[in-house]
Amino acid sequence: MNEQSNTALALSPHRIGAMVLRYLYLLRSSWSRVLDLIYWPAVQLFVWGFLQFYIAQNSGFFARAAGMFIGAVLLWDILFRGQLGFSVSFLEEMWSRNLANLMISPLRPIEFVAALMVMSVVRLAVGMVPVTILAIVFFGFNLYSFGFALAAFFLNLILTSWSVGIVVSGVVMRNGLGAETLAWTVMFILMPLTCVYYPVSVLPAWLQGVAWALPPTYVFEGMRALVLEQTFRADLMLAAFALNLVYFAIAIAVFLGLLRSARRIGSLLQSGE
């Protein structure tokens, strides 16, 4: 074995691959985990899809805006499930009391985060691809028809979901499983502010500033512009991307800070409540 470099930031694809393999083994061994990835996005799709059918029958505006709700719910699920995919993979280590084994191995924190990011995309794909096909079959809504815009939406949403997932995982690592609820709820705090189903202009003026500080707000506004006006707002996507880079860097710094704090208070060994 080679002498290892002494930096927390050095990346080894081999070790990242080992961690991804660990989570793939887990998914493969548990059909209930796979079903869980598809179940809720599908339920959401049907609730909002049928609601959109109903409203469209009674309103000229919504008839023109076909797919707005379904598009919103699918993009929201990318954001929510992306964060959950990241955080739940991390929680698996806490639930199995395996965190200390990983922390005494040569695995760097950044490699751990990178593996969780990969798994967030894998879990998202397992859950969302079937649901987007259901959207085409049942509601005639083809998310993939967004083309390049979808790639921009996805990139921005997944970056935000990772930033939130990184901070949530850091908090759980430091404070134990008592903080696990954050993983399931934190995104719902952002939901009203990111204007998933309505334009930012609906919010009170003072709250609009907060909304524009959140990258997903730009994505949902961009989606509405695309559906209602058939316009791709590159300016919104670039602004969201710039914000995402800042938040991602802050999230990594917070994670490393929480890891240092966990070493100070001894929580890495306990991995409990």
């Binding site: 083994y25 887990l26 061994s29 009391r97 200390a100 084994n101």
Partner: peptide, 12 residues
């Protein structure tokens, strides 16, 4: 390191 207080993933 080995300890009975640290587990490995049970499903694997």
């Amino acid at each position: 390191f080995e300890s009975p207080y640290v587990d490995m993933p049970n499903r694997l």
